[in-house]
Structures are given as structure tokens and as C-alpha cells.
Nucleic acid binder design. Sequence first.
DNA 1: GCGTCTCTCCTAAGAAATTAGGAGATTGTA
DNA 2: TACAATCTCCTAATTTCTTAGGAGAGACGC
Lengths: 248, 248
Amino acid sequence: MVDALTNTMSDFVDRLSDVETREELQNVFERTVYDLGFSCFTYHMVKVVGIGTRLPLVMTTYPKQWENRYFEQNYMTIDPVLEACFHRSLPYSWDEVVDPGALTKEQKEFFIEAGDFKLKNGISVPINGYKGEFALMTMVTDGTEKEAKKTIEEHRHTAHLLTMYYHNHASSMVVGEALKRYTPALTRREKEVLSWVANGKTTWEISEILSIGETTTLTHIENAKKKLNAPSRTQAVVKAIYQGLIDA
Amino acid sequence: MVDALTNTMSDFVDRLSDVETREELQNVFERTVYDLGFSCFTYHMVKVVGIGTRLPLVMTTYPKQWENRYFEQNYMTIDPVLEACFHRSLPYSWDEVVDPGALTKEQKEFFIEAGDFKLKNGISVPINGYKGEFALMTMVTDGTEKEAKKTIEEHRHTAHLLTMYYHNHASSMVVGEALKRYTPALTRREKEVLSWVANGKTTWEISEILSIGETTTLTHIENAKKKLNAPSRTQAVVKAIYQGLIDA
DNA sequence: GCGTCTCTCCTAAGAAATTAGGAGATTGTA
DNA sequence: TACAATCTCCTAATTTCTTAGGAGAGACGC
């Protein structure tokens, strides 16, 4: 006997194998979660590829009007569902993280407005990925309160798994090449030297450790700084870490 | 109709709520995966809490003799199953990542030896957590080749989900307090100043940005360095980032 | 009210990093 | 073979960081 979740997952993974563009990915996911009872979804991913350099990826089937409104009104600063993802690593339904009694006036208005777009119930799945990669998938159910609860509870695990496979695909599809544009190639020595800088060593100490000249060490650090476009060694190290060039 | 996965997960989450010690967690998980057909498991987690400061957590029901052997022989350097976790973010069975034709002589001996301990087939689940937290859960099936394949394919998703809930629990249980021992409390200003250092600013620039004196800025940086036990600003920044004190 | 913590500001010498040049030796590749 | 990239080493002036002190003002909790 094969259960519903396994079926859904097999189908999804099968379809994923043919997916090559963002649109295809979005469509495949939309159809899959629609069959589970979710009317729309939104996927936000950011990857930190350097200080102040974040690679964002948004895929959504939310009403455009609401998306605009959300952005214009800076709702991300008051949205409790979004706030929750920073403290949680497992899926959560909206009613788990929204306490009607503790809402501010603005938040109440926010939810009323969201309700006008049939965004009343949903489940969110936070995802931690590699090296500064973070994503949040939110799926909406627009039935009655009771139906929504049922859909969410029934498909919590499916939603969780689907999101992870979705993220995996989105990540490898988009982040891969994009990263190359941001990530300069450091030489072996440059990385090596930079790692020691990250560990608090001075130029002289590093030259002793690596048994090379002090000026040589200096040259490597300066070259790394130039490649990373960093005015100080500190920023060079931070950038190198965020870009996965060194491990510290 | 409630499927097997949902049942297993409900039971597991239920049992988790009473778990308070590592032993209890281990026992609950062992029983759960045993019912699925897995004979033993091993969970390795590391959290980077600073440069060269890693918080490891190991929970295992592997044969002690094999554990010792693995450690003594430095098998972690040749184990292909372990190697795979660095490149994958979804569960994988051992046969997916082990190519019998491409094994070195040492690796062949390694697998023969593992086989003597009935460690021939299994599934591994890599987990990315918050801020430098990484874990690998491996579950072993010791039946015939055919039974093993069936167990793994049948329970891939269950194993995946169980591992995430397990990790979530283990992480909050262990990392929480332990982190406090390693993470000093930086003041608002110290974090603020350190963030600007991470962004490549000099002391003078930061004092201009924050409209405070240069010596004040210097004081904050020096205090942060002392708290973080870092000999250079660079290391202070790196430590602060790894410990989640600043975002850069 | 009193102690603790935080934020603010100060001096001054010595150590380290930054800047902008150039140049020879080795290695891998077209 | 010739070109490109990497690793190695050099000078020297200027800027920035590091170190070790001290001290007053305001906020907070006991």
C-alpha cells in the first residue's frame, strides 16, 4: 500500500526532473499544492553572497495587487508570519504564530486587508540551506476556517517535504551560476593566507606559519582584497566567508 | 484515512514532547526507526560557535567496536557516505553515493570491515540548521540486499522528516544552553560598531557614521574584542558573525 | 540610595596595515 | 614554444590599529 504523501512526492519528484526554468518550477509546484487544497503560494529565498550583497529569488502565485500593497506598505516589518520564520526551523501554520489578542492595531488592519484577498489561513515552511541560504515557503488555503485547518494538518508533512525538494531545485537552478558572477576565484595561497587572517594572525605570524616572506604574505592578502573588492582585510575575510571561499 | 507516515510522525512528535535528556531522545528515536526496519542509527551534529570552536554532539546506536575502529583508523577521511553529505541537501541512500567501481583499495577494505558489523545498507539525511549548525543522520538496515532497498525506499520520506524533528529537538536541547557558555553578551553599540568594521569601515569612518567620538568608537571595538577574546578586529568580527551576534 | 552596566570621551607610544610601485621563477596550457 | 597565472620577494611613506590606562553621565534594578 502506497500512501497519499508518497504518491504526491513521487509525482512531484518525477515532474521536477524535467523542470528547467523558473516558470516551469512554479507551475509544477502550483499544480501539486493545488491538488492538496492550497490556492496559492509564495517562495522567498535569499542567499548572502557578500556583505550587503544578497541574491534574492521570489516565486509567487499570490494576487499581484496584494504583493504590491505588501511591498508598498512595508508589511514585512509587521507581518507576524514572516517574523516567525526567524525563530523556527519546522513548518508552522499561521494560527500557531498569530495571537489575535497580541496584535497591534496595524497588524489587525494588515490581516483584515489580507483577508480581502482570501489570505486567511496557511502554512509556512522555513528552510535553512548552505552558506547563508535561507528560504520561506508559504502556502495558502482559502476554504472555510474548518476546511483550512483540515488541509493544513492533513498535508503538513507533505508541504514540508515538497518545500524542501522545491528549494533544492530552485537553489541549484538559480544560485549556481549566479554565484559565479559574485564569487571571484581566489588562489590556493590567497585562501590560505586569508584563513589565517580570519584566525587573528598578523602578517608576520602568517609568514612564519607558512614559511614564506612577510612581503609575500602581504602580497597575497592585498591581491585577495583587490579580488574581493574589499578596503580592509576584515571585510575581505567576511566576504570570503560568506562566499564560501574560506572556512575560518 | 491516515497513512503510515503520518502515524509514525504523530507518534514520534507525541513522544518527543516528554523527552528531556539525550538518552530519552536517543531511545525514542531508536524505537521509532526500529519499527520502520532500521537496526541502528548515528547522529553527528556540529555547531560552529567560533573560529576553531565547534560544539559537537554525537548520538549513536552503532556497535561500539565499530565506532572505535572508525575513529582510530580515521575512516572519516575516506568514508564516501560522509563525504557525500557536504554536497547534498536531501536524503540519500548509500548505494546512491557509493560507486563500487570507483572505490580505492582502502575504501573497499573499509566497506568490507563495515559489513562485518552488518553495516551494509543505509540512508543518510543531511541537515542544515541555523548559523553554522550542521548534522548528519544515518540509519542502517541489516536485512538482505532486497529488504534493505525496500526499507530505504519505503521510508525515505519518513526518515527525512523524523530526522528534522529529531534535529530540531536535539538542537534546542543541547545547543541552547551550551551556546550561552560560548557567546558573550555584546552591547548594542558594540554590535553596531562591529558591524561597520565588518563592512570595511575604519575607526574614523564609524565615528562619523554614528556621530560619536573616534575614541569612543575605539573603546567599543576594544571592549568587543576583549569580550570575544580576539586579538584582532578581524577575528572579533568573524567570531561575532559565527556566534550570530552581528549580521554583517 | 547604591551598585552595575552602558555609553561617552581622553592620551600617547609602539605595532601593524595600507598604498603603489616593480620583478624573477615556476607551472600549466594553448 | 609562448602566454597566462601563480608564487615568491622587495622598498618606503602614510595611515590605521593596538595597548593600557582613567573618568564622568545616565539608566536600571535591588
